[in-house]
Simulated assay, not measured.
Amino acid sequence: MQDIDSLRYPIGHFAHGSVFSPEELKGQIRSIAEMPIRLTELVGKWGDDRLDTPYRPEGWTVRQVVHHVADSHINAYVRTKLALTEDNPTISPYEEGEWAKLPDYSLEIASSLVILRNLHQRWTTVLESLSEDQLNRTYFHPASQRSFPVSEVIGIYAWHGEHHYQHIYRLAARNGWLQNNVD
């Protein structure tokens, strides 16, 4: 069995404060664009037995992870638009663990997969159009007590999508679900 840290952070921690080249940003935007398709291909035909399996001991279920990614990326999209239209706005943090306990986290995952597909289309349309000045616009995160430039936010959410995709993918690999990726 793997150690708990490698199960929690299968691709490692995000390096906050990173500066990305234009080519790296393009790759990250492409990753954001493709994530909903990859996630749907992985889990879209799974039944409740798989969807209600935690990706690690004391971790969220696959169903909760999918709904969390939709919630998180909705917030990121709104925060990006706030940063682009206001002067370093203070965003509102949220308690993601508490959100995962709300009744909508028991719904079928199709609703969140559809949200992600459409949201990411809109989000990447905005991200692909940004000038260097717009990439440097910021929002203030009160929990972190610092401002985040849009360019770093792109890196964070490319990482975030892959982080959670790998939670699910590696669970599937450990359980032999990849060979016959249905039900």
Rank of each mutant, 00 (worst) to 15 (best):
residue 160 H to Q: 06
residue 60 W to Y: 03
residue 61 T to H: 01
residue 172 A to G: 14
residue 58 E to P: 14
residue 17 G to R: 05
residue 145 Q to R: 15
residue 120 H to I: 04
residue 73 H to G: 01
residue 178 L to F: 04
residue 172 A to Y: 09
residue 32 I to W: 00
residue 48 D to V: 14
residue 179 Q to P: 15
residue 51 L to F: 04
residue 180 N to D: 11
residue 61 T to Q: 02
residue 44 G to F: 02
residue 44 G to K: 01
residue 4 I to A: 12
residue 87 D to S: 11
residue 30 R to K: 13
residue 164 H to Y: 03
residue 109 I to V: 06
residue 113 L to D: 04
residue 179 Q to G: 14
residue 66 V to D: 03
residue 25 L to G: 00
residue 22 P to C: 00
residue 143 A to I: 15
residue 96 E to N: 10
residue 27 G to T: 03
residue 10 P to Y: 02
residue 164 H to K: 07
residue 103 P to N: 00
residue 99 W to D: 10
residue 43 V to K: 04
residue 181 N to T: 09
residue 173 A to D: 15
residue 88 N to I: 11
residue 71 D to H: 06
residue 156 I to N: 02
residue 128 E to P: 09
residue 47 G to N: 01
residue 101 K to R: 07
residue 5 D to E: 15
residue 132 E to M: 02
residue 147 S to T: 09
residue 93 P to A: 07
residue 35 M to K: 11
residue 24 E to D: 05
residue 24 E to S: 07
residue 103 P to S: 04
residue 37 I to W: 09
residue 132 E to V: 01
residue 72 S to P: 08
residue 49 D to H: 10
residue 114 V to Q: 15
residue 46 W to E: 02
residue 65 V to Q: 01
residue 145 Q to E: 11
residue 72 S to A: 07
residue 103 P to C: 01
residue 28 Q to D: 07
residue 50 R to H: 13
residue 175 N to H: 12
residue 149 P to A: 09
residue 35 M to W: 06
residue 21 S to C: 06
residue 82 L to D: 13
